[in-house]
Amino acid sequence: MKGFFRFLYELIGTPQPPSETPVYREVIFPNVGLLTIGLSLAMVLIFYYLINRAMGVATFNKLRHWVIFLVINALLAFFIGLWQTSSQEVASHSYVYWMSTWNAILGLFWFFLFSVLLKRGSTNASTTPF
């Protein structure tokens, strides 16, 4: 699993500065990866199963609403990246922001993936986004 996240996050290049590489690979990438996947899953569950099913809200299912959640998810993913790197006290480098941005993009992807997988179970949003 660490290998998977390492592969995923090093798609944008190896961690900088290089001296922080062990911390990134062993701690930060798995943490951020799992947190982001968990966050995306939670957001998808909230959108599709809480709002659009359990709470019976039938008017929060348009494309723009889904996009709102998508964007919030990406923003939170960005902050997850910043939060984890600062709590691990890695050396300050612009790489932190690149990684967080990349994590936001991954957050977009996870949200989309979970949406597609789970939208069927939603009462009011089973055809959102398509």
Binding site: M55, G56, V57, A58, T59, T123, N124, S126
Partner: peptide
């Protein structure tokens, strides 16, 4: 009823979607 204030469009929509399933 936080989101289903009586017979609102929201209520109908919700029921319709549910029944459609």
């Amino acid at each position: 009823d936080f989101f289903n204030k009586g017979l609102s469009q929201n209520y109908f929509l919700n029921q319709l979607n549910d029944a459609a399933k």
